[in-house]
Each structure stands twice: as structure tokens, then as C-alpha cells.
Design a protein around this nucleic acid. Structure first.
Lengths: 342, 342
DNA sequence: TTGTACGCGTTATCAC
DNA sequence: GTGATAACGCGTACAA
């Protein structure tokens, strides 16, 4: 009265995935019974459920989420688009975002871009191919048109730290301006008279807006500003910037770096190439608060991007009904010893 | 003689994905024509192709890879299972692996595990749910049984830096033993007499095997070894280890840290808490060669894990036919100034 | 409670 | 060169 084919020669070694049909056949029930058992909808008798579970176990069955998403249910796939994910800040962001997405039952598809518009657009197209229910753009600026395509296909689109308005997209960003104004204030309070801003050749929204905000603040204070963009956003570029700025006749005594990585490289070159004491001879401020900023060799004064809060909010926004959400998170100043206190 | 419904009121604003059927309808052709246009298989006349492309463009159509994978073709999804992806080494690994997978037309699904066996198993199940064509385990040890399920479902399974044998899985690892023997030799050549090993409480295969190899080498040299495991694998644990070891009556003058992060923390505490000069008073060796190891404040002598080669090989193995591939990559010693030269 | 039948988006096969 | 049709694995109305 029960299933034949119990001799286990079925096909557990085949090179193909086990389907609900295979399980049904082995358990001697219908496909629907299997579906009901795993989806929880409808009702199944204890006996049937047992048979199904046994067969599934033996065959190594796992429901196909992809086929499930075919009928219209959300795919639970969220596409994360980012560049430079090997760098401390981006890596931590990725870690927290994946973690929070997983907490809400989503799974992250990570697309590593070069940051330019072309590769971001390519990434966005991938996200459509895989029917991601949302795309989170952590780096780069996607074409407006493609974003609209995503939206009209029913995707959620979240832009992180981008200033541009766009109807329908969700935006989360940090208040760069306020932090940069405070950065200048810190340097002035420390008695710095010749300030400089160290940036990079990467023209990302965040960096541009920090440059601009700091410049405005300096101008408002009647200071002339030395602005350097010696290369990509990296430790090495920070060091190179120090070589450029500190070799001059009237070198700066207060430096704002738009990124911690730049600041750390700047500090190392300032100390070990030019023999500057920090903060006695030179004050340095960074941005992001990467883990290395708190290391004893640096003790860098910086501004903390609330990564965990970002991640939590991104996940929350994606699972909410409200679209076009816009939110500004606070950056916390972190006082350490790279700026004189007096 | 051409399509009606050209007034563009169709449904570009609907909350659902555009299908090939929608495109076919608008272009006034059959679904097959659309399919052929995008898959490249079969042949389509220039005129038809033009009509299809136009309609697809207007509607914002993107082929559904998920439905494509339904019929048996590979999904092109590769599942990456890792913990601590915010840390420099893991982050760089992730960056390179995603990059090389993308070069081969694959897309990465990243699952962030807490590192314990349970969540690795959960991750592996997710990879089955999404019909990933392969799972790459970068951290943690999955249950043997589940790995077999993956294999019998036709998945490739790649284990990175794991020593356990298993039929059917592909393995890529680094030769820890040789590097650790060389680490001891470096310390002895520098004249160190009291050596210590700084490890962490995380019992991962790599760390265990480095501990063991260094211990064996020390024993073979007739040295007693101080082994410390003060916490998780982090900068802070490195610093804490320095506090433990350097406060003793006969502190070590040569230290091997199983990870760069531990070594960097150790160096900072040794210098700034205990006033040790490196390498004059104390030699330090790390492992991994994370970017920070080359920073001027550290100049850490270490062993380079060939991350890019790892990534390239992983991608290559996944796209090859050979299964059960096993490969050992070379670790390159990187001489910097944290060890006396002679 | 259970099974049958259908739809989801795609590709492959076949007849035209 | 083209279009109808079946198949893939799943969820789910609907009927038994």
C-alpha cells in the first residue's frame, strides 16, 4: 500500500536538482502535497507530511525559490551595487547591509562595479535579469533612464549618499555639509592658520559635496584653501598629497581629508617623511571612522558614518510599503588626538 | 500591416516585470521571435529583430534569467559563503572573487555567516534554494552531509583554505606549514631567543594549522613556545596579547602572529604601551599581507596570501569540467622592517 | 485532506 | 525565417 522504488537506486547522484515532482513520486503523493508541505499553505495530514519529509530528506530536496518567484511572488533577492568593496569603509557597509537583509529573509546579490556610469548601468541591468526585488546603489551614479526602467518593472531602487532627486527612488544619505563646517571649526579652534583639503580624483557625490562644503566654510571664514587631488581614494594618495603640500614654502598646519584612508596616508607621510608632530605641528581630520582610524598609531579625529544604522534603515525601507522615502542620517564627530584640543 | 497599440499607454508604469510576451505583443511577432532575438540561437530577419528591439526598448524589457535556468541551463549564480567580510583580508578576497566571477559571466550571491557550523549549513541550504550552480565556502566548515547534498544536486562545491578531504569537492588552499617554518627561521636568524605565537580563539582551520606548524617548528628547534589566544581575530586581541606577553618577567623578543590584524595590534601596544622598539627590541611577523601591513607606521614582515590568484583559480575551477580539483598555492614571504635583518 | 489543472517566462523542437 | 507547442518547478484555485 506504500510507495514502490524504495530500493534507493533512484537518482540521488544525478547532476540535476531534485524537484518537488521527484519527491512526490517517491513519497507516493501528488506534487501539490509536497508543495503544501513546504509552503505551509493549505493543510496536510500528519501521515502525508511525514511521508513527504522522509522522501525529501532521502533525496536531498530543496524548494526552488527561482521558480517560486516566477509566478509573481517577490524573489527575495536584493542587488547590491558597489565599487572598491575591498576598502575598509565599503567592506563594513557591505557586511552590515548583507547582515540586515538576511535578518529580514532577503539574500544579497553583490555586483562589483568600477564605479563609472557604464558599469553601474550594467549592474542595474543584471539586477533586472535576475528579477531582484530591489537594487541598492552604494557607489556610482546610474543613468536616470535605467533607474526608471527598474522602477517601472516594479523594483525598489535605493540610492545611498547621493544628492540627486528622482521620483520613486528611496534615498538615504548623510549630512556632509554640517560635518564639514564642523571640521573647519575644529581646525580653527585648534589655532590652525593655513588649512588644506585633501581629496581624490574620484568624482563621487560624497567626495564632491565634502570638498564643496569645506571650501565654502573656509571661504566664509576668510581663509584661502589648498585643495589637492593627487590620485584615487587611497592611503597612497594621502601620502602623496602630504608630499605635495608639506614640501611647500608655507605648508598647511591644518588638513581636512575627505576620507579616513587619505588621512591615514597623509599622517604617515607627514610624520615619517617630513618629521611633523601630530597634533603639535599639524592637525589632521578624516571622514568615515574606519576601524584603522582608532588604531593607536593614528588616533585620528574624524566623522563617523553610521554604517550599522544605514544598513538597518536600508533593510527597513526595502521591506516597507512607502516608496520615495528620503532620510538624512547624522554624522557623529569622533574626537581623538590628531587635532589639538586647546 | 504593423502593430496596433502604438499610442504608448500600454503599461510601462505597472508594478510588474515586462515579459517576452509583452514585447512580442507590442512588436506584433511571436514569443519565439523575441526569444531568438535575445538568446542568439536560431535566426531572425533584420526587420523582425529591429521591431523586437524597438518594442523591448520602449517597454524596458530584460530577459528573466531565473526562468531561463528553470529548464536546466546553469543559473550562473555562484554562492559565496563567508564570515567577517568587513575585515581587510576577507573583504579583499570577496572583491577579487566577485570580480573574477563577473569576468566569466557569473554573478555572486553573498551569504554572510557568523562562522559557526550552523549558519554555514544554513547558507549552503540557501544556495540550494536559489539553484546556485556552485558554492564557494570561504569561511567555516559545512557539514559533510550537506556538502554531499549539494554535490548530488549537481552543484560544484569549492572549499578554500580547508584541509579536510572530501570526494567531489574542489579545494584550493595555501601552504601554511612551509610559511610557518620560514617564520620561525626568520626570527631565529634575527637572533630572537624567546619566541611567542599570538593566535585567536576562533578555531578556523587556517589558524589552527598555522599554530600547529609554528609550534612544531619551535619544538624542532628546541625552543619553548608561548601561545596566546586572548580573543577573536582582531586588532584589539593583538593589543591585548601584547599586554599579556610583554608584562611578564621574561617577555618574548620574537613574535609570530597568525594574522596581520593581530600583528598590527600587537605592534601598537608593544610600542605605545611598553615602549618597545621594533625591530630592535622585538621582532614581529604576521600573515596575510593585508594593505595595512605595508603602511609606513607598521612595515610589517608577513606572508602574502595570493588573493588575486585565489580568485582567478576559483573562477577557473568553477568553469572547468574537472571535478575534485585540488590545488595548493604558494605563500610569498614579504620582507619589511618589523624583523631585524641580521 | 487530497489531487487535477493552470499560469508564471523562457527555451527547444517541430511544422510551416 | 517564423510561429505554435511542450517542457521546466512551483504555487494555488478548484474540484473531488
Amino acid at each position: 500500500m506504500d510507495d514502490p522504488a524504495n530500493s534507493r537506486p533512484d537518482r540521488p547522484e544525478r547532476g540535476s536538482f531534485v524537484s518537488a515532482g521527484d519527491v512526490a513520486e517517491r513519497a507516493g503523493v501528488s506534487r501539490s502535497a509536497v508543495s503544501r508541505t513546504f509552503s505551509g499553505a493549505g493543510s496536510v495530514s500528519a501521515a502525508t507530511r511525514r511521508k513527504v519529509m522522509k522522501a525529501a530528506e532521502e533525496l536531498g530536496y530543496h524548494a526552488n525559490h527561482l521558480a517560486r518567484g516566477l509566478t509573481g511572488e517577490p524573489s527575495d533577492i536584493v542587488c547590491l551595487i558597489a565599487a572598491d568593496i575591498g576598502q575598509p569603509f565599503q567592506a563594513r557597509m557591505l557586511e552590515q547591509v548583507t547582515r540586515h537583509l538576511q535578518l529580514r529573509g532577503k539574500v544579497a546579490m553583490v555586483i562589483n562595479t568600477a564605479g563609472d556610469g557604464d558599469s553601474v548601468s550594467h549592474a542595474l541591468r543584471q539586477s533586472l535579469h535576475y528579477r531582484a526585488e530591489a537594487s541598492v546603489v552604494l557607489t556610482g551614479t546610474p543613468s536616470e533612464k535605467l533607474v526608471q526602467t527598474c522602477l517601472s518593472n516594479g523594483q525598489r531602487v535605493v540610492l545611498v549618499n547621493r544628492d540627486d532627486e528622482a521620483p520613486g527612488v528611496d534615498r538615504l544619505r548623510v549630512d556632509n555639509d554640517r560635518a564639514c563646517v564642523e571640521a573647519l571649526a575644529l581646525l580653527r579652534r585648534a589655532g590652525c592658520e593655513r588649512v588644506a583639503c585633501v581629496s581624490s580624483r574620484a568624482r563621487t557625490t560624497s567626495l564632491l559635496s565634502r570638498e564643496a562644503a569645506f571650501s565654502r566654510a573656509a571661504e566664509a571664514a576668510g581663509l584661502t584653501l589648498d585643495l589637492t587631488r593627487a590620485g584615487p581614494t587611497s592611503y597612497e594618495t594621502g601620502a602623496e598629497s602630504a608630499r605635495l603640500l608639506l614640501g611647500r614654502a608655507a605648508p598647511p598646519d591644518g588638513v581636512f581629508c575627505v576620507t579616513d584612508l587619505l588621512a591615514l596616508g597623509f599622517m604617515d607621510a607627514a610624520r615619517h617623511v617630513f618629521g611633523r608632530r601630530i597634533p603639535e605641528d599639524l592637525c589632521v581630520i578624516g571622514f568615515d571612522d574606519v576601524p584603522q582610524a582608532s588604531w593607536t598609531s593614528y588616533e585620528l579625529t574624524t566623522f563617523r558614518q553610521p554604517i550599522e544604522e544605514f544598513a538597518e534603515r536600508i533593510a527597513a525601507v526595502l521591506t516597507s510599503d512607502e516608496v520615495g522615502h528620503s532620510e538624512v542620517l547624522e554624522v557623529l564627530p569622533v574626537w581623538r588626538s590628531s587635532v589639538r584640543m586647546a
